[in-house]
């Protein structure tokens, strides 16, 4: 523990945290909300990468768990408006997404490769259909508005949403993001994380050394889904409104895109990917109505020219500039 707390990675994290905490001093409020969006999506990208990088399975349906977290917040407000506090909303996000991912994951982890991916996609579309069609319960395609919550009993009456987002909520998002990153780092380096990587590398051998492969993969699925749910919960306050689209296949594809853009072989890659994606999509949308062509085009270029993503490319370049030393791997 000691050696990795004081490693260069820990120092890098500390510097990144200081930079994040100082951003409100230099960034415009508008860009600060973009950073908030990027950080909340980064939690989700970290979650997806637990399955992709460490368990070796690709989910095309993680929007379902993001939506589970976001809708837990929305429904809490809809049905229990008097108890709509941030702390309760986060607990609801974690609980509901853990439950949904446990149920969906139980089905999915019985398969690997394309079968796993198709099942995750199918279950996400099932979630989309439920959220879209159960109009009286979920608000259907109109979605649910997310008002400002209370914080540990403190009322935010009189505070405008924008003030809230660029004020106290920014620091809350940074705190949750930092905690989620450290938890995920601990998980991937833990005995569980190593066992998970063992199942990815060689399922047959993993079974023969006493690893219950499906059970471990299921645990990873639940952790991954819960991270997405937390992300959805945090993001719902930033966006202020949620609709069933966040559980659909397009959004689920965007999560995969974020991870590939940042680089899934390096632990921090998905974080970089989520931040870059937030800005890329914003500028692409502002530039042209065919913004999805830009996103799709960059994905093609990425796969062909930079399969390790942005962080993989940087690590490769750094390794080339330091002769005799190998490239870093997460």
């Amino acid at each position: 523990m000691t050696n990795y707390l004081f490693s260069s990675r820990a120092l890098g994290y500390l510097l990144a945290l200081i930079v994040l905490l100082l951003l409100p001093q230099v960034l415009s409020p508008y860009h600060l909300t973009l950073v908030e969006t990027g950080l909340s999506l980064a939690i989700m990208a970290l979650g997806l990468n637990l399955l992709l990088r460490y368990a070796g399975v690709l989910s095309f349906g993680h929007g379902a768990y993001f939506a589970a977290g976001a809708y837990a917040v929305g429904l809490l407000n809809m049905y229990f408006p008097d108890n709509f506090s941030f702390e309760l909303a986060m607990l609801a996000s974690l609980g509901v997404s853990a439950l949904v991912s446990a149920l969906f994951g139980f089905v999915c982890v019985r398969h690997t490769r394309i079968f796993f991916s198709i099942l995750t996609l199918a279950l996400a579309m099932l979630m989309f259909a439920i959220l879209e069609k159960a109009y009286h319960f979920t608000g259907g395609s109109d979605g649910i508005r997310i008002p400002l919550p209370t914080f540990f009993g403190i009322e935010l009456t009189g505070m405008r949403r924008f003030q809230f987002l660029v004020g106290p909520y920014y620091y809350i998002v940074v705190g949750i993001f930092a905690a989620a990153t450290l938890v995920m780092l601990a998980v991937v380096n833990s005995p569980f994380g190593k066992a998970l990587q063992a199942t990815r590398d060689n399922e047959v051998r993993a079974e023969m050394v006493g690893i219950r492969v499906k059970r471990f993969r299921w645990y990873a699925f639940v952790i991954s889904g819960t991270f997405c749910g937390l992300s959805g919960g945090v993001w719902s306050f930033v966006n202020g409104h949620i609709t069933p689209e966040i559980s659909g296949w397009v959004f689920s594809g965007e999560i995969v895109y974020m991870v590939l853009l940042g680089g899934f072989m390096i632990f921090e890659g998905p974080i970089v990917g989520a931040m870059l994606f937030t800005y890329l999509r914003l500028y692409a949308v502002a530039w042209t109505e065919y913004w999805m062509l830009i996103v799709g085009g960059t994905l093609v270029l990425l796969v062909l020219l930079l399969p390790g993503g942005v962080t993989g490319g940087i690590a490769g370049l750094a390794a080339r500039l330091r002769p005799g030393r190998g490239g870093g791997r997460g």
Binding site: A186, N189, S190, P191, F192, K194, Q197, V209, G210, I211
Partner: peptide, 23 residues
């Protein structure tokens, strides 16, 4: 890690989440 994973399995410690394996 190849060998340590087996050792941890034998000690029924593979299901632990937070402390790094090196710990």
């Amino acid at each position: 890690d190849n060998v340590r994973t087996c050792v941890l399995s034998n000690r029924n410690q593979l299901g632990r989440f937070f402390k790094p394996a090196s710990g």
